[in-house]
């Protein structure tokens, strides 16, 4: 049963995951945290951090981790392959059928229209993680270290395109020192 659920969830994410790894975060978060409750929002945040710091696609990392925590080694392989399955079929079909220029222009315009929605999708994933589990000191005491870390990392990432791995390591050090 759990295997079927993993298969269904990750095939679905493979089909609908337009716009790269970050866009898939929202889909994975909804299924894994909100719908099935396989992970808490805190686990999810930890996992995203680990995925960010390791090489390789974030979504494959997440699929492996979710599969492993819910159904062991077999689950991790199943979830990762389920995520790739739609790609296997689509790339095969595209190479066989050959995409015409006209279809390509249509696809291009469709994706342009999709982009603002995908950006919203990613933003929502970030907002959903802004809870008291991930910001435990919010509204308590004089200093909200978590808020300071978040604002600092946001400014560094948005305005200065700081290296995410560096930001995660720095935040970890700050957490170790101040908590």
């Amino acid at each position: 049963m759990i295997y079927l659920q993993l298969l269904w969830v990750f095939v679905k994410i493979g089909v609908l995951g337009f716009g790269g790894g970050y866009a898939m975060l929202s889909l994975i978060q909804h299924e894994v945290v909100d719908h099935y409750g396989w992970m808490t929002m805190t686990d999810f945040a930890d996992m995203v951090a680990i995925s960010q710091m390791t090489p390789g696609p974030i979504s494959i990392n997440l699929a492996t981790y979710v599969g492993y925590t819910t159904a062991g080694f077999g689950g991790s392989l199943l979830a990762s392959f389920a995520l790739c399955l739609p790609s296997v079929i689509m790339v095969y079909l595209i190479l066989k059928l050959f995409m015409s220029k006209r279809n390509n222009a249509l696809m291009d315009n469709t994706l342009k229209g999709l982009k603002p929605a995908i950006a919203g999708l990613i933003f929502a994933a970030g907002l959903s993680m802004m809870n008291l589990q991930n910001f435990p000191d919010f509204g308590r005491g004089q200093y909200n270290i978590s808020v300071i870390i978040c604002v600092f990392a946001f400014v560094a990432s948005y305005f200065f395109k700081a290296n995410p791995i560096l930001l995660i390591v720095m935040s970890g050090i700050v957490g170790f020192v101040f908590y």
């Binding site: 995203v48 991930n134 978590s146 990432s157 995660i168 957490g175």
Partner: peptide, 17 residues
């Protein structure tokens, strides 16, 4: 360590969006 990292992860998702 992870208490410090979690708020950073939130920022790292919001910024690219």
């Amino acid at each position: 360590i992870f208490k410090g990292i979690r708020p950073c992860v939130v920022a790292l998702i919001l910024a690219p969006s």
